[in-house]
Nucleic acid binder design. Structure first.
Length: 897
DNA sequence: TATTTCACG
DNA sequence: ACGTACGTGAAATAA
């Protein structure tokens, strides 16, 4: 029988692992002083990529010493020279990497005179001859030359947990060549990372063109004389030796004499004892917890248990759903349910398959969505009697709505719970989040592929197993997740805020916001005319044509050719951001034009073209998705399109809002927003008497702050500049003040900013105390909380690096404020939604923009809606400070603000 | 894919 | 001495 052989390029992956977590280098140090970033990433890689693969053989190949001791070093003295020497922080992790490989049940191998590539090349051919299936995992594209029908190369992209799968077809599609030609491509281009050259001036594009025409290097040189004269032809002729040397360097050995064979590298799964020992030594707390929870899940197999057996035990057999099985399922009172779709945008994605079941009757799946016409299935979805467990209730509500059903009886939304437990590292993917609880599930990418490669597998069984296992995972994780939630005192936040909110949001999304496309298109035309004339003027003034959208070309013009002073740099060159251009404007008239061009280009591309592209032609509406489990603070975010950043601050941009209109004639748009909600939250949670007083008396808070920091009398007039400064200070306080930030914002000296802050803290002492206290709490507990126990962990709070740590401290101050404000408007949304239903209003909530709610309603309902919404928002929560709501209405969103 | 810029709160 | 204001998403360019 054909076996699965896994060959891993240890060096390239370890390197990738080190740099994948390079930013966390500082944070990942054991008490003994050992850095562990590469080890953590490598462990993730082994768990997420290797473990689910369950190969029959597994080997990790390492380079023996340096490249110079291999034949390639003899062939070309500079081979791999100039490579950054591995930092000490990396080298110290090497011995443990090998131990980790062993503990995971894989074999290490290296051999003098060979590189890891050659070991892999040789073994892949051995496996191929034996009729086995070979999978190579590496970060080095060179290895793709080994690809055949039986040999697949998985190349890590971005970090170590995402891979691109190279098959002969894929290579043909991507480069238009065969795997064998990869070597000749390298021969022509050389390799900068291994520091050997190819033919002068030949890069990837040229090389591929040449190979398409001449197929290989030998044939190319056989016909080089027939090429028509060109610089390239000369280069090819001159560099012939270089090319052939490069080809030798790039060719991986496939017939090396190895001291091992396939029989020596059998894989029998991880060794629990070895893993525990290693993880304890490295202080991997999470990994240890994961191991322990797995041991509990496994059938008490004890120390002899290996992961493969446990894995099998984890998942039930998934059966194809039938009417008979539905009959049994509908009698249950607890069921997990899951639908897989072809894309993230559940408003339009196709539904692939669905599954349901529980631990008693088992798990069932189907690709036949006509089953949703069946009464039993409708009952399961729509009845309150059956408590459902899902991953992402909001998405499922919308999908089921598309099928003509209304989701009811949701008890457990694993996505919401996982997000509330810990916002950090949440990618909204079931397999990842399940991993936190020690449950390992195939990823969607493994089943469906991704990008252009996305395809639903032909075999029904593969798909049904996948969705069935998802349902099972969600079913199994409920109790553990809920008990964690209780420990965090987050039961109320989940049951009374986030879960009910998800259905309010689902309805808002499904409803959509009507867009006047003609109006938008007309605005676009006018903008295009202005853009064209601005462009012409700019070219005239510059004396040349260039791409104004290119910061690089613009920088060259302004700073190199025109010699304007460089105010700020980015990591790649000159900054041309607004703040910089505004400073340059008095010196060069062209800059004003560029600013105007930029503004218009932005409006046109993002808000005219961008918006028109996502209007659903069936109903002339945009259907955003509010991401409820993304932000670190508890706010929502909005995508496809983002309705939370429609222009407002400039009149030209604000006109875009004219295109957002009610969905019915004689209806209005109505907007209600909280005034100063974050400062009110701050006053409330710090209990500062001065600030409290200002809000209770409904004073102008920025003017009041100005009187305090400028030492004016209680009723003294405040000039515009003083108010502006005070406003900036208030903003700074909410953001977690720093003198540097304030000085930059106000364009004043840092020491002046510092003295503003000192005065502020003297005048508002309770705020000062709270800021100190919250930072201390963060240092002690590692997290901060909002008024509703929303939690944000701050992994950097004890970092050695000043900047990293300071960032975490500002976050500790800002998150409870921003997050509590988010809590409040979420509560208000649920209550408003209920009030509208109870009063039988036709009005509909459409959008939330952090401190603002937007509705549409019949004209005659406006007064009642205004009364209802403002009262409910006012009274959403009980604070020591009154909340204040302002509202506006009109025929479009433009007037409703 | 990463970086820069800019739209919002 | 260090070099950040907090939280987002989309588009364009460069690589």
């Amino acid at each position: 029988m054909s076996k699965k052989i896994l060959l891993i390029d240890g060096n390239s992956l370890a390197f990738r692992a080190f740099y994948a977590m390079y930013q966390q280098l500082d944070r990942m140090v054991t008490p003994e002083g050992l850095h562990t970033n590469a080890l953590v990433a490598f462990n993730n890689f082994l768990e997420s990529i290797v473990l689910p693969m369950q190969p029959d053989m597994g080997l990790v190949a390492w380079d023996a010493r340096s490249g110079r001791e291999t034949f390639r070093g003899d062939l070309y003295a500079d081979y791999k020279a100039g490579r950054d020497k591995a930092p000490a922080e990396f080298k110290e992790q090497f011995p443990y990497l090998r131990e980790m490989v062993e503990a995971h049940g894989l074999h290490n191998y290296e051999q003098m005179g060979l590189e890891a590539d050659d070991i892999i090349g040789t073994l892949s051919r051995v496996g191929q001859k034996a009729g086995d299936q070979v999978i190579i995992i590496t970060g080095d594209q060179d290895l793709t030359q080994l690809v055949t029908d039986d040999v697949t190369v998985k190349l890590t992209k971005k970090g170590v947990t995402q891979v691109e799968v190279y098959t002969p077809d894929f290579i043909m599609e991507k480069f238009g060549i065969t795997p064998e030609q990869i070597i000749d491509k390298k021969a022509l281009t050389g390799d900068t990372s291994d520091n050997y050259p190819g033919v002068t001036k030949v890069g990837e594009k040229t090389a591929l063109k040449l190979l398409k025409e001449y197929h290989d290097l030998d044939n190319l040189y056989a016909h080089v004389d027939e090429m028509k004269p060109s610089k390239m032809k000369e280069n090819l002729i001159n560099d012939k030796d270089v090319a052939y040397r490069a080809r030798k360097l790039a060719t991986i050995i496939t017939d090396a004499k190895l001291e091992i064979g396939l029989s020596d590298i059998a894989y029998n799964g991880p060794k629990e004892k070895g893993l525990v020992e290693l993880f304890e030594k490295l202080h991997f707390r999470q990994a240890l917890n994961k191991l322990r929870s797995q041991s509990l899940l496994g059938d008490d197999l004890g120390e002899a248990a290996d992961a493969s057996e446990q894995k099998q035990g984890d998942f039930a057999k998934v059966s194809t759903l039938t009417e008979a099985s539905l009959k049994k399922l509908v009698e249950e009172d607890q069921l997990a349910f899951h639908i897989d779709t072809t894309g993230e945008n559940y408003h339009q994605a196709d539904m692939i398959a669905f599954a349901l079941g529980n631990d008693k009757v088992g798990y069932f799946a189907s690709r036949d969505f006509t089953l949703f016409d069946h009464d039993d299935l409708r009952t399961i979805i729509e009845s309150d009697r059956i408590q459902l467990r899902l991953f992402n209730a909001k998405a499922h509500w919308v999908l089921l709505h598309r099928l003509g059903l209304t989701l009811h009886g949701v008890d457990f939304d694993f996505l919401l719970v996982a997000y509330l437990l810990d916002t950090v590292g949440n990618d909204n993917v079931l397999s990842t989040l399940a991993g936190r609880f020690g449950r390992y599930l195939a990823t969607d990418e493994e089943i469906y592929g991704k990008g252009a490669k996305f395809a639903v597998p032909e075999e029904a069984e593969v798909v049904e197993d996948h969705v069935g296992h998802k349902a099972q995972t969600v079913f199994d994780l409920r109790d553990q997740a809920f008990s964690d939630l209780d420990e965090h005192e987050q039961g109320h936040l989940y049951s009374d805020i986030e879960l009910p909110l998800s259905f309010v949001l689902a309805k808002m999304e499904a409803r959509g916001f009507k867009v006047n496309q003609d109006r938008l298109a007309k605005m676009g035309q006018e903008m295009d005319e202005k853009i064209a004339s601005l462009k012409e003027e700019i070219f005239q003034m510059a004396g040349e044509e260039f791409n104004i959208n290119s910061t690089k070309q613009l920088g060259t013009l302004l700073f190199d050719k025109m010699g304007l002073p460089v105010i700020k740099k980015t990591k790649t060159g000159y900054s041309t951001a607004v703040e910089v251009l505004e400073k340059l404007a008095p010196q060069a008239p062209i800059v004003e034009h560029i600013l105007a061009y930029r503004q218009l280009a932005k409006l046109k591309s993002t808000y005219v073209d961008g918006l028109l592209a996502v209007v659903d032609q069936a109903d002339q509406k945009v259907h955003t998705r509010f991401l409820q489990t993304l932000t670190q603070t508890g706010r929502l975010s909005s995508v496809d399109p983002n309705l939370q950043n429609i222009p407002m601050r400039t009149e030209e941009g604000r006109k875009i809002r004219h295109a957002f209109v009610p969905s019915k004639p004689d209806w209005l748009i109505f907007g209600a927003d909280y005034s100063q909600i974050e400062l009110r939250v701050l006053a409330s949670i710090t209990g500062d008497p001065a600030m409290e007083h200002a809000f209770v008396e409904d004073e102008d808070i920025h003017a009041e702050t100005a009187r305090k920091v400028f030492g004016l009398a209680d009723d003294a007039p405040v000039d515009a500049d003083q108010r502006r400064t005070a406003k900036a200070v208030n903003f700074g306080i909410v953001y977690g003040i720093s003198d540097f930030g304030l000085s930059k914002n106000l364009n004043i000296a840092r020491k002046d900013a510092k003295s503003f802050i000192e005065t502020y803290f003297q005048e508002f002492p309770k705020i000062h105390q709270w800021m100190d206290a919250i930072k201390e709490k963060a240092h002690k507990d590692g997290f901060v909380e909002t008024i509703e126990h929303r939690r944000r962990y701050l992994p950097d709070i004890n970092a050695k690096n000043f900047n990293t740590r300071s960032f975490a401290e500002r976050t500790a101050m800002n998150s409870p404020i921003q997050g509590s404000a988010a809590d409040i408007i979420k509560i208000a949304m649920i209550k408003v939604d209920r009030a509208i239903q109870e009063k039988g209003l036709q009005a509909r909530m459409l959008v939330q923009v952090h401190d603002e709610l937007v509705f549409e309603c019949p004209t005659e309902e406006l007064d009642q809606l205004r009364e209802t919404v403002t009262t409910v928002m006012d009274q959403a929560v009980k604070l020591a400070i009154p909340l204040k709501v302002e509202s506006h209405a009109g025929p479009t969103w433009y007037e409703a603000k």
